[in-house]
Simulated scan of single mutants.
Amino acid sequence: MFEFKINIDEKEHDQFVRESKYCNLLQSSSWALIKQNWKHEIVGVYEDSRLVASSLVLIKELPLSFTMMYIPRGPVMDFENEELVSFYFKNLKKWAKKHHCLFIKMDPSIHYCDYHLEDEKKVYPESEKIMKILEKNGCIHMGLTDDFHATIQPRIHMAVYKNEFSVDQFTKKGKKNLKIALKKHLEIKMGSYELLDDFCRVMNCTSQKKGISLRNKEYFKLLLDTYSEDAFIMLAYLDLEKTYKESKTRFDQVLKDIALCPAHAKKKRFQLEETLESLTRECDELKNFMSQYGNTVCVCGTLTVQFGKTSEILYAGSDNQFRRYMAPYLTWTKTMEECFNRECEFSNMGGVEGTLKGGLADFKAVFHPVVNEFIGEYDIPISRLLYRISKFFYKKRKG
């Protein structure tokens, strides 16, 4: 006997989500604390006093006392149980109607297909079955979108799985750049609040480089406050003083080599003079950095949150002035190592464009990721009469 309930206990909900194969950070009860400009409720279904379906529902207030709702990476249930799915959505709509909801948007954590970049894409038959069940229950599919910005959450992600994680699996480019980073005077630090200012600086560098507005310090602090020990920052610091001394030693040696170079060895002299010119620029640049930042500087970082056996690299930033040191390759590697040390099954590196091309995808590709394609976004109209009008204004506001 099914029973639909609201105001489900947060701990019970979180435990249910953690144990589900559809576990996702965005369905953790604490995610409601992050989405401060939304109200929320946890609703679900019990069968003989046992929780069998649960969902964190975010509620956005609209003009004229209307609302819209969003279930991020949810709901969580056995989607192949048609009786349960039917009961859940029937009662969800009734409950939403009491809140004057125009429509509900959801993007379940159901994988449409998973594959490595070099593999053939094969769609899961069970996913197609679930999609038909959802449509049967009045859920309108927004399509298998490829555009990164077409949906609230990107439909296509790249993730590295614990059982496959190995530097040996990295691409040739990944191995090469990681090797470069390991030879540089980089120090990796993991922590929390004490690293927040430096993390915000490199995030601001990324924001300026891309010409987009990213989250601020208060938001990152909120993530740390909310998820506590399940959230961590990983930063890479470059020792400018040691790097300068190393370059200066090489500069002095090249000067000596030029002085000793025979007049007839024109090719060798040309090569030495080119090296000297490069080292002159490098030393001048490092002296300028030291006057600006001191002896060490944070060059890149990540902020990661764990939930159950999943982990999400939510934010990452880097200072492009120091790109030659390849610090992000080392920082992301150390981030994923920490996730797997925490017994996470995978480390989600976040969304990418459906073309699987471009700077973001190209960088993530070096870690030998699995491409996770979700089934995508759905709308559940509550007021059929007002749904089309509300969708028009939703798209206009989003655009």
Rank of each mutant, 00 (worst) to 15 (best):
M1Q: 12
K11G: 15
K11C: 15
Q15Y: 13
Y22Q: 05
N24K: 09
N24M: 12
S28C: 09
S30P: 09
W31T: 07
A32Q: 08
L33A: 12
I34V: 15
I34P: 11
H40D: 09
V45L: 02
V52W: 15
S54D: 10
K60E: 01
K60I: 08
F66V: 07
T67W: 01
M69K: 03
P72D: 00
P75W: 10
V76Y: 09
V76S: 02
D78R: 08
F79C: 15
E80Q: 05
S86Q: 11
F87L: 06
F87I: 11
N91T: 09
L92N: 03
K97L: 04
K97N: 07
C101L: 06
L102D: 09
Y112G: 07
C113G: 12
H116S: 02
E118A: 03
E118M: 01
E120P: 06
E120H: 00
P125V: 03
I130M: 10
K132Y: 10
K132W: 05
E135N: 04
K136N: 06
M142E: 15
G143W: 03
L144I: 14
Q153K: 12
R155F: 05
K162N: 08
K173R: 08
L178D: 09
K179I: 02
I180W: 11
K183Q: 10
S192M: 13
Y193P: 08
L195Q: 06
L195P: 06
D198T: 01
V202F: 08
M203D: 04
S207D: 11
Q208C: 00
Q208G: 00
K210L: 04
L214V: 01
R215G: 03
K217Q: 14
E218S: 12
K221E: 15
S228Q: 14
I233E: 08
A236P: 00
K248H: 15
K248M: 10
T249W: 14
D252Q: 13
V254W: 05
I258L: 09
P262W: 03
F270M: 14
Q271K: 15
L279H: 07
L279G: 09
T280G: 10
C283D: 03
D284F: 01
E285G: 09
E285K: 06
E285H: 05
E285S: 13
K287E: 14
M290N: 01
S291W: 13
S291H: 15
G294Q: 00
C298Y: 02
G301I: 04
F307G: 01
T310M: 10
I313G: 15
Y315K: 13
G317R: 14
D319F: 07
P328T: 05
E338G: 07
F340N: 00
F346C: 11
S347R: 02
L356A: 03
L360W: 02
L360A: 13
D362T: 15
N372L: 14
E373G: 02
F374H: 04
F374L: 13
G376I: 00
Y378N: 00
P381V: 00
I389W: 11
Y394C: 11
K398M: 13
K398Y: 13
G399C: 10
G399R: 09
